[in-house]
């Protein structure tokens, strides 16, 4: 992959084999563009967290290189780590610190001089201002998650890694987080998130990468991916149930639902001739009484499952 001036993170031929022999990453190459939201999808153990951990400096790579803002993460680690914020998957917080102190600690750790006004604005933005003097162990899971985001943003990073940020949080908080991620992107922060939730990637990502068994299977624009791999289905609801697909409709590859009340036609919506017109004419000619018609688009989740299953 060529590295353009818009590339903020460049990963080249990255591999990681742990001491126990487990190969978590296999020759991963990826360019992440400045200001985008990239969602990395993959099942448990796919290598998502290992990839993030290497970029952030938590785990050593076995081979390959990573640059952030054009700087190597090993030789120029002070520059690259200063640019990165990380929200880990687990709720890894001390127990006895207050919210204010833990954010101030994080800011100092990343070499930034104290800025109470910024920390105050950040806490207000995360709806944590009224909890600023609360000890961490007294907070709910959702609040702890927001504190972790606050810690990651405390040193004003330009690249933010969110490792499964909405795992185990309720729907309302998840939507709040999505709104926060969008606001951060608008402020110029590049965001890389890993998630199990396809709807999360579908809702907020610009590009989607699919990773499984340590291999990056694909990276593409979310809409282009759905365009390329997405199929549409037309569901024809019948007045009277059928026991089998009528002979004159067999050529269309229709599927009959178990109760015999629906015929399902799968087609590529991007083809010039989708076959929908022809099918409706044949149904009309055959005299099949149609009760209703509807279409559905293949979700990112179905694309993801199909990709992972295919490669497995």
């Amino acid at each position: 992959m060529s590295q353009s001036s818009q590339t903020i993170v460049s990963i080249s031929d990255l591999s990681k084999t742990y001491a126990n022999g487990y190969q978590a990453l296999k020759h991963v190459s990826l360019d992440i563009q400045r200001g985008e939201i990239l969602a990395l999808l993959g099942p448990n153990g796919a290598g998502k967290t290992t990839l993030i951990s290497i970029i952030c400096g938590i785990v050593n790579a076995s081979s390959g290189t990573v640059t952030v803002g054009g700087h190597d993460i090993v030789s120029a680690y002070r520059i690259t780590r200063g640019m990165i914020g990380l929200v880990p998957q687990e709720l890894t917080l001390g127990a006895f610190d207050t919210v204010w102190n833990t954010l101030s600690f994080s800011r100092g750790l990343f070499g930034k001089k104290p800025n109470p006004a910024y920390i105050e604005a950040l806490l207000k933005d995360l709806s944590l201002w009224d909890k600023k003097n609360s000890v961490l162990m007294a907070l709910s899971g959702g609040m702890k998650r927001r504190v972790l985001i606050g810690k990651a943003l405390s040193h004003e990073p330009t690249v933010l890694f969110l490792d499964e940020p909405t795992a185990g949080v309720d729907v309302e908080l998840r939507k709040d987080m999505w709104a926060l991620v969008r606001r951060l992107r608008e402020s110029g922060v590049t965001i890389i998130l890993t998630t199990h939730y396809i709807e999360e990637a579908e809702a907020i990502a610009d590009r989607v990468g699919v990773i499984n068994h340590g291999e990056l299977l694909l990276v593409d624009d979310k809409l282009a991916l759905m365009h390329k791999l997405g199929k549409r289905q037309m569901i024809i609801e019948l007045e009277t149930p059928l026991s089998a697909v009528p002979a004159e409709l067999v050529a269309w590859g229709l599927e009959l639902s178990e109760d015999g009340k629906e015929l399902v036609y799968t087609y590529d919506p991007h083809k010039s001739n989708t076959g929908v017109n022809g099918l409706l004419q044949v149904i009309n000619t055959a005299g099949l009484p149609v009760k209703d018609l509807r279409t559905t688009q293949t979700s990112l989740e179905e694309i993801f499952v199909s990709l992972v299953n295919k490669r497995s």
Binding site: C56, G57, I58, Y77, R78, I79, T80, R81, G82, I84, L86, P88, E90, T92, L93, G94, A95, S106, L109, F110, G111, K151
Partner: peptide
């Protein structure tokens, strides 16, 4: 050891230090 045990050590490991 305590930040290692709780996992909070990730922050020190990922800091420019």
């Amino acid at each position: 050891f305590f930040p290692k045990f709780t996992g909070a050590i990730y922050e020190v490991m990922s800091a420019p230090i």
